[in-house]
Computed example of a mutant assay.
Amino acid sequence: MSLDKIFKDPAKVCAYFLAIIGFFFLGKGLIASKGVLAPVVVALILAMLSVPVARKLESWNFPRIWSTVTVLLLNLIVIIGVSALISFQVRNFLDESDDLKKEFYPTLVSIEEFVLKHTPIDRGSMESYKEDFGIEEDNGEDSEEKPDGEEVKENQKGAIEVLGATFGFIADFILMFVYLFLILLYRRKFFKFALLLFPDDKRERYRKPILKSTKLVQYYLGGRLTLMVLLVGLYATGLWISGVENFILASLIGAVLSIIPFIGNMGAYVIALILGVGSGGETDMIIGITITFLIVQFLDTYVFQPIIFSNKLNINPFFVILSVLIGNAIWGIIGMVIAIPVFAIITVFCRNIPELQAFGYLFGNEEKTMKKAGSEK
């Protein structure tokens, strides 16, 4: 339908206007319900990834309950193992933080002198900026000494906030696994419920996108995990050769941040530079870090991703970035991690529902979407 016909029909204009308002309040609702919905969505995506393992166990005559428990334990072992490895590396880094500060301080002084010499910023403005960002030098003298009572209250308040955040995280973590267990155990019931939402004559029509979206999430997450393992090995090798002391920590950070397209890669490179310079790295180390990231990113973009994904996601890169930014605005880091699989599911439904095929064309890669549409006709 052309735009002229739409604007000539007041009912259509009102419908589109109400749809825009509905999306706005949907976003507000998602932001407000993060604490409730985020564990459910994460559990749902983990369940999609774990279904093939559960089916394999059930093909070996495992009862449904025991296959579900086994898959749950496998997920728990993997998550705890990765978390323990990262926390161990972070703890070692924090133990060396005082030495890193001493190594990094001359570099900061050189940067400061360069800025003062080659920019209009004067010493007073520089000190003001440092104070605003909380990086002013510590002279060993407290300009404002607080009474012991106030200091104790502040420490107690900080301890309570930390305990609250810790218990909140543990509660969400436990809830996520409870949801994962129930989704895997009753997955057939949830699938039949999704089909029952549609009329009898249209159930087979919507059965295909539901199954396809599940396989797509499995395909994406499995491929992403494989890529992360490859990236850890490549980053660790290159950074070790470059002489970075905390090369394992930098490699893990680089692999984890690769989940976030484009932005994560730049962030990982900056963190690796900071770790390298902070450990006393010279120009050779900086060049080695830069070459490592350039080579790994080239291999990741032009070799590994085409082989692993084979372009089956078929999502426009513009909307990949946009979905990650929207996910961050709604649910923060969790939203950034789950943004691409959720958007891939939305794209699959848009391509398979006639009323939304225009959006399916917009969200997908133009050439492949056009070929698919032509073949369906």
Score class of each variant (00 low, 15 high):
residue 112 E to Y: 02
residue 44 L to W: 05
residue 170 I to W: 06
residue 300 D to H: 02
residue 309 F to V: 00
residue 97 S to T: 05
residue 132 D to G: 05
residue 102 K to P: 06
residue 371 K to F: 04
residue 167 F to I: 13
residue 112 E to D: 15
residue 17 F to S: 15
residue 246 N to Q: 10
residue 165 A to H: 02
residue 109 V to N: 10
residue 176 M to V: 06
residue 13 V to P: 06
residue 340 I to K: 04
residue 63 P to H: 10
residue 343 F to Q: 00
residue 317 P to V: 03
residue 185 L to W: 01
residue 75 N to L: 07
residue 197 L to V: 10
residue 272 A to H: 08
residue 220 Y to S: 07
residue 24 F to H: 01
residue 340 I to L: 09
residue 320 V to R: 05
residue 305 Q to Y: 14
residue 295 I to H: 05
residue 51 V to A: 02
residue 369 T to A: 15
residue 193 F to I: 07
residue 239 L to T: 01
residue 219 Y to N: 09
residue 68 T to G: 11
residue 228 M to P: 09
residue 245 E to H: 04
residue 143 S to G: 15
residue 123 R to P: 00
residue 172 D to M: 04
residue 147 P to L: 09
residue 143 S to D: 15
residue 173 F to M: 12
residue 100 L to H: 07
residue 240 W to G: 14
residue 46 L to H: 09
residue 56 K to P: 08
residue 351 R to Y: 06
residue 53 V to S: 12
residue 211 L to D: 15
residue 8 K to R: 02
residue 187 R to A: 10
residue 108 L to R: 04
residue 57 L to D: 13
residue 228 M to G: 08
residue 94 L to R: 11
residue 342 V to P: 07
residue 295 I to C: 08
residue 77 I to K: 03
residue 216 L to V: 02
residue 318 F to A: 15
residue 137 E to A: 14
residue 110 S to C: 08
residue 239 L to C: 07
residue 77 I to W: 07
residue 255 A to V: 00
residue 191 F to I: 12
residue 341 P to Q: 06
residue 233 G to M: 07
residue 177 F to P: 11
residue 128 S to K: 01
residue 99 D to S: 14
residue 67 S to F: 01
residue 61 N to A: 12
residue 365 N to A: 05
residue 289 I to K: 05
residue 62 F to H: 11
residue 41 V to K: 05
residue 164 G to N: 13
residue 352 N to D: 12
residue 292 T to H: 00
residue 161 E to N: 14
residue 306 P to R: 08
residue 239 L to V: 05
residue 304 F to Y: 03
